[in-house]
């Protein structure tokens, strides 16, 4: 079970959090302009890589804030935690 360093509350047990999938997938501003394929790309396509992955997490049983983490999926090490709207860290 991870320890996640919530940017608002500090280090807490994973059980207080909810995972929200891949980060940095922005909802298109003008969905009506998109083709079916382009919309499907936003709606369904997600990465599943071995290595560092950017993910959304929500401190559901805490401050209820969403934030991002960079997690290595091969060993579950969390490299960085950063707030919504911030750019992903460069390796």
């Amino acid at each position: 079970m991870f320890l996640i360093n919530c940017p608002f509350c500090g280090e807490r047990e994973q059980s207080e959090f909810k995972a929200g999938g891949e980060a940095h997938i922005e909802r298109p501003k003008q969905p009506t302009e998109l083709s079916d394929d382009e919309w499907a790309e936003f709606l369904f396509m997600r990465k599943n890589i071995k290595g560092v992955q950017f993910e959304r997490w929500n401190h559901a049983h805490g401050c209820r804030k969403w934030f991002n983490i960079a997690r290595d999926t091969s060993n579950d090490q969390i490299k960085t935690v950063y707030k919504m709207g911030e750019k992903p860290p460069v390796e």
Binding site: G20, R56, N58
Partner: peptide
């Protein structure tokens, strides 16, 4: 509530 919070915080801040 969780879903609405999600949109407010991440898509429409």
């Amino acid at each position: 509530l969780g879903k609405l919070e999600d949109y407010l915080q991440t898509e429409w801040p």
